[in-house]
């Protein structure tokens, strides 16, 4: 933590280039970076917490909406996306390890796989969204289900052994919450792609070594959080009835 008396600012010869001038030791820099990213993750959790509160509020006030609406979500696509994200978290964790062990090729390969999974998630999500919008399963006052939505709803009800319905029940509150939560999560996936791309570019330039891999580590932690939020969203939206 402390500066030695000889460590003056005009003489940087004892500072490796990745050590910022205002830190005294690599440990201090690493610890600061690590603490910083964890604090940032705390703010992310709180950012999402507002939407989780909204979820709890609407679920407790309109339980029937949430029960019915979960029939309208595509559980298979949700499950595939869960698997995609879990895989990406694994490769991200591997990438961090590769950076620590200075395995340049392994680092780049794992980052590419993570990036591919992130794009894959968005592609699947795009198909889910576009189908929902196509049949008019929209948020708030844009709610306008088509007859196709009703027939799909009845198929799912029949498959689950439930009685079918004549008129589509009003589920707009659920879809407001659904689009908000999955949309904000999707934005975080996009930001994750930017961050992983940045780390990848730095990896090609050989910026990381066993003493300095903070950027890989931080991006990894962020990516795990994005993954973790989906792990909560998937059962809350698709599975719980």
């Amino acid at each position: 933590m402390s500066a030695t008396a000889t460590n003056t600012h005009d003489e940087h010869h004892d500072h490796p280039e990745w050590l910022a001038h205002h830190f005294d030791t690599p440990e201090q820099q690493f610890e600061a970076g690590k603490f910083g990213i964890w604090l940032f993750l705390v703010t992310e959790v709180l950012f999402f917490s507002g939407l989780f509160c909204a979820y709890i509020y609407f679920r407790s006030h309109h339980p029937e909406m949430f029960k019915n609406a979960s029939f309208l979500l595509d559980t298979n696509m949700g499950a595939i996306n869960t698997a995609v994200l879990l895989l990406s978290s694994f490769t991200m964790a591997t990438a961090v390890r590769m950076a620590q062990t200075e395995n340049q090729k392994g680092l780049i390969l794992n980052l590419w796989i993570t990036l591919a999974c992130a794009f894959g998630f968005l592609v699947i999500k795009f198909f889910e969204y576009s189908h929902k919008l196509h049949v008019g399963l929209k948020w708030g006052d844009a709610w306008s289900p088509t007859p196709q939505a009703l027939s799909e709803f009845n198929e799912k009800l029949a498959a689950a052994g439930q009685p079918t319905v004549e008129v589509m029940p009003d589920l707009h509150n659920f879809f407001s919450v659904y689009y908000c939560m999955t949309g904000l999560h999707g934005i975080h996936v996009v930001l994750g792609i930017v961050a992983i791309g940045w780390v990848l570019a730095r990896a090609y330039r050989g910026h990381f070594n066993r003493y300095y891999f903070t950027a890989v580590d931080a991006t990894g932690l962020y990516w795990h959080l994005v993954d973790l939020i989906w792990i909560f969203l998937f059962p809350l939206m698709y599975l719980i009835r």
């Binding site: 709180l46 950012f47 917490s49 507002g50 909204a54 707009h172 908000c180 904000l184």
Partner: peptide
């Protein structure tokens, strides 16, 4: 502050799209 962030974001979306929350 993140809670204010999400609140204002929801208000923003509500005003733009008629979210209804």
């Amino acid at each position: 502050t993140p809670v204010l962030g999400i609140t204002l974001l929801m208000l923003f979306v509500e005003k733009q799209t008629g979210l209804g929350i």
